[in-house]
């Protein structure tokens, strides 16, 4: 049984923001709840108040406009996977969506919640924190059970991997995330939303405790060729071991620019500057694609080869 909390269901964004505390830990936002409820049962988070945002109509809907596709944070993954326009214009994202979790989860899990889900690192889930250490302050992951931990961006204390599969595809398409708080609203490119925490009090994303994610905007992708690829240990209902999302702007078979995002390999969805540079200006062939793949993991440091 999780700890007791009080529960509010505001009907507007403004109310929701005012019901949230300014510091993490006291209040949490409840949307689909598929991650939060489990975290609360395991006492990893123990808020004193849950602010259920599911009654806020402003956070629903999918709107297509000049800027691209605006998706309200409360849309479920199932609603997104069913959206004709999304499937037509953003096929790599649609590919990523159909294999997220299971039917039961996609029916309730929201886009905002998927992007803000907490890492699956088993140390974190067992209550050792995002940057797990022993009593002497020594990092637990480096010599512990680390076969699913980061191989890139792992030079700091954070060794977990970013859990959202669709974040990689969204970042490849150049999506932005809209956030609203008591100081007004702001828009952040999704790749800048994620960050690698250096201290225990930081979260792995750029969201303050009294802010809510309101919308995701994906720019028009008419001139973009994109694909999403996953490697899984289990065929279905599991987080992938690794994800690559690639979006290319092309002129014939020549690549003008590339966005290459690798998921589940670093504490943030990892944009590979090396692979992007290698592809820019080159003609796509099996050989260039292979070299880009090699460039993407050239600087990887699987720290724990003895465990593999």
């Amino acid at each position: 049984m999780m700890r007791a909390f009080d529960y509010v269901s505001p009907s507007t964004k403004v109310e929701a923001i005012h019901l949230l505390e300014t510091r993490w830990g006291k209040t949490e936002v409840l949307a689909g709840g598929t991650d939060l409820v489990a975290l609360m049962k395991d006492d990893v988070v123990a808020p004193m108040r849950l602010v259920n945002i599911k009654d806020i109509k402003e956070l629903k809907g999918i709107v297509s406009g000049r800027e691209g596709l605006g998706i309200g944070a409360l849309n479920t993954l199932d609603e997104l996977a069913d959206n004709e326009e999304l499937r037509r214009n953003y096929p790599a994202l649609a590919d990523a969506l159909v294999d997220v979790a299971s039917t039961q989860i996609r029916n309730v899990a929201t886009l905002g919640g998927n992007l803000c889900q907490r890492p699956r690192c088993w140390y974190f889930r067992k209550g050792f924190g995002l940057l797990p250490k022993d009593e002497a302050g020594k990092d637990l992951v480096s010599e512990g059970e680390n076969r699913y931990h980061a191989i890139l961006g792992n030079d700091g204390p954070a060794k977990f991997v970013s859990p959202s599969t669709i974040a990689s595809a969204l970042i490849a398409y150049g999506a932005k995330i809209r956030i609203e708080g008591s100081n007004g609203h702001r828009e952040v490119p999704l790749n800048e939303f994620y960050r690698i925490p250096k201290t225990d009090i930081e979260r792995e994303y750029d969201l303050r405790a009294n802010e809510i994610v309101t919308e995701i905007v994906i720019p028009s992708a008419q001139d973009v060729k994109a694909a999403h690829y996953e490697v899984r240990q289990k065929e279905a209902f599991d987080w992938p071991l690794a994800v690559a999302a690639v979006a290319l702007k092309m002129n014939g078979s020549r690549v003008l620019s590339a966005r290459i995002v690798m998921g589940h390999v670093a504490p943030v969805p990892w944009r590979s500057a090396e692979a992007e540079q290698l592809l820019a200006g080159s003609i796509i062939s099996e050989e260039t694609a292979r070299r880009a793949g090699e460039a993407g993991v050239k600087n990887a440091t699987p720290p724990f080869a003895q465990c593999l």
Binding site: V37, A38, S102, Q104, I105, V108
Partner: peptide, 23 residues
């Protein structure tokens, strides 16, 4: 009891979901 196994599947507004993960 963690939205992983499906034994608690029920329908909510005609959609399958895990009853363990909804308050």
């Amino acid at each position: 009891d963690r939205a992983e196994c499906g034994a608690c599947t029920v329908l909510m507004n005609k959609k399958a979901m895990y009853a363990c993960s909804v308050l």
